[in-house]
């Protein structure tokens, strides 16, 4: 892994992408003992409309706390894709929701598609786990943290009653994400 790896999750406010960012940072910083820094859009823009959460993961202490050049980006909606799928590194990855992002941003990066919301609704039965599917798909695609660390971080965050549901969502997303890049 490069010394500094930057991931941006974007979508509509309320889709749980800030939580996805926090879980990823916990997997890296608390479970794997790497350096990680999570930040998010804040203020009016975080309520409805497009929202984003950024995670920087590094082997060394992280100085500049904002994204410089994004390695991997997720966009769950068209508005988020238009607004936040920018500054992606040459050769970087962009994962979009296949149903909600009709026009993929163009750039020197690879675009991957997964029907994330549909998978949450139809395969798992609850739209609320879309953020966990998105998170684990990104982990499957990038390997930025291990499969186990990601799963553990998800389980730590959710109430016991929702553990199995989230585990199922995590594993689905991970497999689909991994299959995309192989």
């Amino acid at each position: 892994m490069a010394e500094r790896y930057e991931i941006r999750f974007s979508g509509a406010g309320g889709q749980g992408l800030i939580t996805a960012g926090i879980i990823l940072a916990e997997a890296a910083a608390i479970i794997e003992g790497k350096h990680a820094l999570q930040s998010q859009s804040y203020g009016p823009e975080a309520r409805g409309g497009a929202s984003k959460s950024e995670v920087i993961i590094s082997d060394a202490p992280i100085d500049y706390p904002k994204a410089t050049i994004v390695d991997t980006c997720l966009a769950m909606t068209q508005e988020a894709a238009d607004k936040y799928a920018v500054g992606i590194k040459k050769g970087g990855l962009l994962l979009i929701d296949a149903d909600f992002v009709k026009t993929a941003p163009k750039g020197d990066f690879t675009v991957y598609r997964l029907p994330i919301m549909r998978m949450a609704k139809e395969d798992i039965g609850r739209e609320i786990v879309a953020n966990v599917i998105a998170l684990s798909a990104v982990i499957g695609m990038t390997g930025v943290v291990s499969r186990e660390a990601g799963e553990e971080a998800v389980v730590r965050r959710v109430p016991p009653a929702f553990k199995d549901l989230n585990k199922k969502a995590y594993n689905l997303g991970y497999e689909k994400g991994k299959a995309l890049v192989n």
Partner: peptide, 10 residues
């Protein structure tokens, strides 16, 4: 500042 106030680190 707001950046350090709201970001998360270990």
């Amino acid at each position: 500042d707001e950046i350090v106030g709201h970001m998360r680190e270990r």
